[in-house]
Each structure stands twice: as C-alpha cells, then as structure tokens.
C-alpha cells in the first residue's frame, strides 16, 4: 500500500525514542494493531507506549506533537464479536474495554477513529474474509470518516490504479467500468445537491 509505514514494535531490539518520535510526527494516522490479550494490548506494545509516549512529547509545555493526527485501533480476537456487548458473555463492549487508549488519544488531542475489529477470522467465509481485507485497507488509508463520499473516492482511486495494471484487452472494458462508476458518483452528487436546494427552499419558507 502507498504511503503506509508498517512498524513492528515488538521486534525492536532497543527502542530509540527519538527515532520513534520522528516516525510518529511524520504520520497522519497512527494505528495500534494487536491481538487482544486479557482485554488489553500485549506487553510489547504497552512497553513501547510507556517508553515512547513521554509527557513532554504528548502534551508537555503546551506542545502537542500528535495533535490532529488520526488515531485508530485494529484489534483481533478469537472470541465472537457478539460476546462483547452489555448482556453478552464478556459483558462489555470493545469500545468500553479500549477506554485507556481513547483517553490517551484524547489527551494528545488526536482524532479518534472507530475500532476496527477482526473477530474469529478463521470462522469467516471466503467472501467475508475478502470484504474484511478491503475494509482493513480502507481503514488504513481511506479519508476519515467512513462516509459514502469518502468510500467512493477511495474506490475510484484504487480502481484507476487497478485499470492501469491490466492488459490492453481487459483495460478497454475496465476503463468503461471506471467511467461509468465516475458517472454514478456524479449523478449521486447532483441528486444530493438538488435535495439540499429543496431543503433549503423549505427552510426559507419557514422564515
């Protein structure tokens, strides 16, 4: 994927705090990805956070180095997602369990994204796993929030790249697909504009 840095903190022999700060500063979106170990991240990530996220770096002296960066969590679990809710076997939601990370992100003045959960991956059907793969890619580099507008833009961008990789024969058809997809986006935009105009007219009548 373009412009994505995959940084495996558990495999670092020694944590170079300055280097980690530099990496963090250059990112627009910071995602912690981990398997759920006793309702939290494994020790390796916790150790990295405690070492790297010093007070001065996060909020000291009114300097917020992570301010306005987006913050995401990718959590994998072997338990079914339905267990994580009030009344479920676990009795609480992942949103509740992940509160400490959100508290951290809030303190750092980051933009908090919804959690991306991967539950019981191996129990999923192939189409479900395929959908999950693309949802995951979108979680990493699609514009936030996950609105239909932003989804359309992401798919248009990826489809353009996909079409350019095809052989000549397939490319012709795929180009038509891309064009039609773009037309659909435009049509929807126009419908939205018309609706907005009518709503505005109704509001004006009330005045």
């Amino acid at each position: 994927m373009e412009d994505v840095t995959w940084h495996h903190v558990e495999s670092l022999e020694k944590i170079d705090v300055d280097a980690e700060h530099k990496l963090l500063k250059q990112a627009d979106r910071i995602i912690f990805q981990f398997p759920l170990y006793w309702y939290s991240a494994p020790a390796g990530l916790k150790h990295w956070i405690d070492t790297v996220m010093g007070r001065n770096f996060v909020y000291g002296d009114e300097q917020y180095n992570l301010e306005d960066k987006e913050f995401g969590l990718v959590v994998t679990t072997g338990m079914p997602l339905k267990d994580f809710q009030v009344g479920g076997t676990e009795g609480m939601s992942l949103d509740q369990i992940m509160t400490p990370y959100r508290a951290f992100a809030k303190r750092a003045k980051m933009i908090i994204m919804p959690i991306f959960t991967v539950a019981q991956f191996w129990y999923q059907t192939e189409p479900q796993q395929m959908k999950l793969l693309i949802d995951y890619q979108r979680y990493i580099n699609q514009k936030y929030p996950d609105s239909l507008n932003n989804r359309q833009d992401w798919f248009e961008h990826e489809l353009t790249k996909f079409v350019s990789r095809l052989s000549d024969e397939d490319e012709r058809n795929a180009n038509l697909v891309l064009e039609t997809f773009r037309e659909q986006i435009e049509d929807l935009d126009q419908l939205n504009d018309t609706l907005k105009m009518i709503k505005k007219g109704e509001d004006d009548n009330l005045e």
Binding site: M130, L133, I134, L148, R151, L159, F162, F181, D187
Partner: peptide
C-alpha cells in the same frame, strides 16, 4: 478479486442511496 467484490458493495450502496 477481493477489491472488485467490495466495489460491487459500493455500487449497490450508491444505487440504494440514489
């Protein structure tokens, strides 16, 4: 294949929204 499968979901979503 996964990408195109998901693309179909968005196309359906566009249709529904429209």
């Amino acid at each position: 294949r996964a990408f195109l499968l998901s693309l179909k979901s968005v196309i359906n979503e566009q249709n529904e929204r429209s």
